[in-house]
Design a protein around this nucleic acid. Structure first.
Lengths: 197, 197
DNA sequence: GTCTATAAAACGATAGAC
DNA sequence: GTCTATCGTTTTATAGAC
């Protein structure tokens, strides 16, 4: 077994986490299918053959990356809940963060959206459910904010907000134009303002 | 040179077109990076080695597919212009077609959007400009419709409509739920209705 | 636990017979 | 023009020394 459980010697070098972190970045920049184990090993400073000490297959790394991205969403949600009292303020802060990161998103697309798209392509069932779970993480947090606003149509509103973001990310990255995403973020802010609590 | 120019013996079997057609479908279903030349050759009924009689490299096939998808957009635009007099009716008909094809779009994503995303991933310049050109084809036709409606903000409106579509496609395919796309199409119809000519 | 070496298969691309 | 056979490389995955 790798570095025991998540106890003491977990981060002795934390090579497993380094591998996941490197894979996260490479999957975002190059796509899942185009990223090789050698790429991940190189960036992690781990010898190629040693990767199989931490993961039993390539698909295992993909699953670990999806888990990491999902936790990333949870953490971001928790941060926003700590920083802002009202759910609407949280959603507006989220959109504001998107606008701030428009350069990175334009360069490589939304980290969550492109990962989901890469996981949908193989018509493998287990891969598709990973994509569904990841997207659901994003929608679920958004939905909860609308629920706390007292909206019965929270799910529909959440799907709309996430779709607005994903659409902006796809078009902006395809055109290579961050202004598209900035404009879309402004639209999202206005749309949020128009939602009655 | 392959089958001469685009003259008489162009479609003697039309194997080049069969290859492009097969690649179109496979790129949509599996993604560009995950599709091998053997996949394309198999589906085309062309021997693997023979692919290089029609294309000098794999990248050449990718470029040909982008060209075919771009022509597809032109043809669809021309069809809508023939069928509907007013630009608004054309846009509404386009959204209606999206709703009708929601099953296929949910299964594999938007053929144009996912192709663009696959072309953005390699930080290769020529690949990125292919993505930009393809997305621009989609936006340009939409923009022209808004222009014919007399709108000065035609570009912004076009970007918004395309982003609404792409966002719906990403979320629907990630969740594997066609209803998300159907709902999004209804929103797009209402949004179009609210646009003053 | 960590690393090197390498097996086994898949892939892009080429050569050359017909 | 069409097809088969194959080269050289890359990629996933394993074996085994330390």
């Amino acid at each position: 077994m790798p570095p025991q459980r998540k106890g003491a010697s977990e981060s002795r070098g934390g090579k497993r986490e380094q591998l996941v972190s490197a894979a996260c970045g490479l999957f975002h920049q190059q796509g899942v299918a185009a990223t090789t184990l050698a790429d991940i090993a190189d960036r992690s400073g781990v010898p190629l053959g040693n990767v199989y000490y931490y993961f039993k297959s390539r698909d295992d790394i993909v699953a670990a990356v999806v888990g990491a991205r999902s936790r990333e969403i949870q953490d971001l949600g928790a941060l926003l809940e700590k920083r802002h009292r009202s759910p609407k303020a949280r959603l507006k802060a989220l959109v504001s963060m998107v606008a701030d990161q428009r350069e990175a998103i334009t360069a490589y697309g939304c980290p969550y959206g492109t990962l989901c798209a890469d996981l949908v392509s193989p018509h493998d069932d287990s891969s598709r459910s990973l994509a569904a779970g990841l997207m659901q993480s994003l929608v679920a947090w958004t939905e909860q904010q609308f629920q706390e606003m007292g909206r019965r149509d929270a799910r529909a509103l959440a799907l709309e907000l996430v779709a607005l973001y994903q659409g902006g990310a796809v078009v902006a990255s395809a055109l290579g134009d961050p202004d598209v995403l900035a404009q879309q973020a402004r639209r999202m802010q206005r749309w949020l303002d128009s939602i009655e609590a």
